[in-house]
């Protein structure tokens, strides 16, 4: 398979890594309509990523090589972009709603001292998130997870990157 997995296909895999599930259970876990989940499952059955044992879906143990292929660097970059794009769209779509999703991008010039302070905050934030991850409640729904973005980029490298054809 040349293309990388879409977010909804990844969500299905993520859910099935936790445990095998029926169609209804998957629909609840990833918070999508049963008819949509059914179509996604058909696609994944065609790709031989999952198996259907009497209505219970699970990851195919004999096809890990294929699954590993869709977890390569290019695919991870694609997934990252999907998540970021989704977060940006969702952020702007949610303007005016109570359920505003926070997403903030600032362009600032920092002194070396300010960069040190910023890095210290970032380290603390990472430690906090790592701690939450370790206490992760595996009974919670896949769809209920929060996507947390943090980090920074050098504006110059982004400008140069935008020139690649």
């Amino acid at each position: 398979m040349n293309r990388s997995l879409t977010l909804f296909e990844r969500a299905i895999l993520e859910s099935l890594v936790r445990s095998d599930k029926t169609l209804d259970q998957l629909s609840i876990d990833i918070d999508l309509d049963v008819s949509v989940v059914e179509r996604i499952l058909n696609l994944m059955l065609e790709l031989n990523f999952i198996s259907d044992l009497g209505g219970v879906f699970g990851i195919r143990g004999d096809n890990f090589d294929e699954i590993r292929k869709v977890s390569g660097k290019a695919q991870v970059i694609q997934e990252f972009s999907d998540l970021l794009t989704g977060a940006v769209v969702s952020h702007f779509d949610s303007f005016g709603n109570d359920d505003v999703q926070r997403l903030s991008v600032k362009k600032v010039s920092m002194t070396s001292g300010e960069i040190r302070i910023y890095n210290a905050f970032l380290t603390r934030l990472e430690e906090f998130i790592d701690g939450v991850e370790k206490r992760n409640n595996r009974n919670s729904k896949v769809a209920d997870q929060q996507l947390v973005f943090f980090g920074n980029s050098n504006y110059s490298s982004l400008i140069k990157g935008s020139l690649s054809i």
């Binding site: 040349n2 293309r3 990388s4 879409t6 909804f8 296909e9 949509v36 179509r39 996604i40 696609l43 694609q78």
Partner: peptide
């Protein structure tokens, strides 16, 4: 671009 188009077709097949 090819990958993007293929993925768009996958999304389209799922949402009908």
């Amino acid at each position: 671009i090819v990958v993007d188009l293929e993925r768009s077709l996958v999304v389209s097949s799922v949402v009908g």
